[in-house]
Design a protein around this nucleic acid. Structure first.
Lengths: 233, 233
DNA sequence: TCGGTCTAGTGGTATGACATTATCTCCTAG
DNA sequence: CTAGGAGATAATGTCATACCACTAGACCGA
């Protein structure tokens, strides 16, 4: 009956207004917002207020602020990596166990395999093989980088040719979440096993064999997720 | 050799410091940060700088700021909705199509069904039935709320008893994403169809029938995603 | 006991100044 | 004629101070 009369923060109102412009498409990636001083005039507020609004927009990844002449606030064109980081933040700051995250990851990485099999092009398969070969020779030289398995899984997701899925998988391999999901495999032995399994997986994809690909990936995920299983292997 | 001493922004340094305390667990949800004026003293910076840092933390959903006596910045455990909104903003700017998002959603919501079937308790099933009944009677009264289907799907995800999965599904149903994935179903007729399908889905879950549950859900997702399909039904 | 007033503490905003940084312009030396 | 450097310029980054609005709790009176 009586609606709440809450005149929130002025800075929040500015944030909302800018977001609205973004949603309406009247501000597109690459556009430059007016300078802080000019925004003050237009909104009729002080510079502090405008700056706080810009900070919020920047923290949300919507704008990019540059200093110096020709500087200012520029609307960003978000990359899937940025979005993935946001998702990773969400997952990392909440009370999740490693098992929770691993299970969610399994759902996605196994669920996309039919799509991967259906859509992977010859270039995709070749790129995957090249990646495994490069990683294998890196291992032979004793160079193990923790991002290597992440790169592989991300490339597999790219085979779906669906940027949303790609972004989802990448978010699970963000640096923040790595300690949760792939810690046990950083040992060289685990790396070798990983390479073999990756190759077997690619073979299944090339053969368009959904069942086998899922089976290989299921085992791979299971092994890399559980230390004791890895110790036995 | 000489590492960059680019101490970019002072406010960002404060943000990082607080985030570190959060990650170390030295600040827990419910704790209250010192007042702005006290933080100024401790960090040796001005109040504006402290406030910008607090804005960033607030925008990230890490703290909650209250005014008045006994007010201040309180550490909060971020909910999926808060960060899901930020995520949705980014998604709007990204080159994702509705089809991309829908497909990603299908992978997850179909992939979790085996988990749902395996783990749903009697309470879960009862809660789902109650929800459908409540939504049906709301429809009969002519009240259709767009968040209704989102609530249902989120509750289904909760049946996995895995908070990571729950959060993932919720983020797909963030208010700003709804127009992308469930727009065609806002019409009353679509709502009725939705209720029937929801009921059929619950029956399959209660019968522990993975195949049937997946089949019902697949059709449901397919119908709500494509306007022309809906028009024919 | 109930209701109002007072008050101290806190965030919200305004103003004005100066510092820092990156880009552009132009001038000068070779 | 070209390359490089010294300003000019325009924007963000930071500071200090002041005042306002709001809220919780203490206090007080009928």
């Amino acid at each position: 009956m009586f609606k709440a009369v809450s005149l929130n923060r002025v800075s929040q109102a500015i944030v909302d207004q800018v977001k609205l412009l973004l949603r309406q498409g009247r501000l597109k990636p690459g556009d430059r917002l007016p300078s802080e001083r000019e925004l003050c005039e237009r909104f009729g507020v002080s510079r502090v207020t405008v700056r706080e609004a810009l900070r919020v927009l920047e923290a949300g990844g919507l704008i990019d602020i540059r200093v110096g002449a020709r500087g200012g606030a520029f609307v960003t064109s978000p990359t899937s990596r940025q979005i993935g980081e946001g998702l990773a933040d969400l997952l990392h700051l909440s009370p999740l166990t490693a098992a929770d995250v691993t299970e969610a990851r399994q759902v996605i990485e196994l669920g996309i395999i039919p799509l991967v099999v259906a859509r992977a092009t010859d270039q995709d398969v070749t790129a995957l093989r090249d990646m495994v070969r490069a990683q294998q020779s890196a291992l032979d030289r004793g160079e193990y980088v923790v991002s290597m398995p992440a790169d592989f899984h991300a490339r597999v997701a790219a085979c779906t040719h669906n940027p949303a899925i790609e972004m989802l998988v990448q978010s699970f391999h963000s640096p923040l979440l790595m300690p949760l999901i792939e810690a046990p495999v950083v040992a060289p032995l685990g790396g070798y096993h990983g390479s073999e399994e990756h190759s077997a997986f690619i073979d299944a994809i090339a053969a368009r064999d959904v069942e086998r690909a899922q089976s290989v990936m299921r085992e791979h995920l299971h092994r890399t997720a559980e230390p004791e299983t890895y110790a036995v292997s």
